[in-house]
């Protein structure tokens, strides 16, 4: 009946957010949601398995705060201009997980955070090449990403 309940629900909510919360749009939005759920099911994608979904809000809160902080530190670096020493550099980050959903979320987090950029994932060596704008201590960065995000992601997805 409902192959992807979360997708169907999200599409329905999106439909109603865009068109208004009325009974008519609830029905129309549900139709769109159901149709999209079945269409996706016929593609047989790999289903994400959320083990501890209740940790997602915690991860989201950490990420919003980190993005806010790094916005200001990067803004300060740009405003300082040529007066600052050039401290950018590459980092090779080893990642434990091979779960594509966990990797996708990690990529979104690192890309949305100004100051760190996800360049390339190597599935054979399980490493990610990152570029960091304000690189002072390489090991500290790796430890920070592992402790703040990867531990939570591993708990959520594996």
């Amino acid at each position: 009946m409902l192959p992807f309940p979360i997708l169907t629900f999200c599409l329905m909510m999106m439909w109603m957010l865009l068109n208004g919360f009325t009974l008519g749009h609830l029905i129309l939005g549900s139709l769109v949601g159901f149709a999209a759920g079945w269409a996706l099911a016929s593609l047989r994608p790999e289903k994400p398995r959320l083990k501890k979904w209740y940790l997602l809000p915690k991860l989201a809160a950490i990420v919003v705060v980190d993005i806010f902080r790094s916005n200001f530190s990067v803004a300060r670096l740009i405003v300082m201009g040529k007066k600052r020493p050039n401290s950018s550099g590459f980092i090779l980050l080893p990642v434990q997980t091979e779960n594509p959903f966990a990797l996708a979320v990690l990529a979104v987090i690192l890309t949305s955070t100004p100051g760190s950029a996800w360049l390339e994932y190597d599935s054979r060596n399980k490493t990610v090449l990152l570029h960091v704008l304000d690189l002072i201590d390489r090991d500290e960065w790796v430890a920070m990403i592992k402790n703040r995000y990867e531990v939570l992601l591993l708990e959520i997805f594996e």
Binding site: N71, V74, I78, G81, S112, P114, A117, L119, H131, L133
Partner: peptide
């Protein structure tokens, strides 16, 4: 920052201020 940072990889970081 997108206009003024020196290298391509550094310039990559600047527009993420706008998208976050």
């Amino acid at each position: 920052g997108f206009l003024r940072l020196p290298s391509f990889y550094e310039r990559l970081h600047a527009p993420t201020l706008g998208t976050s």
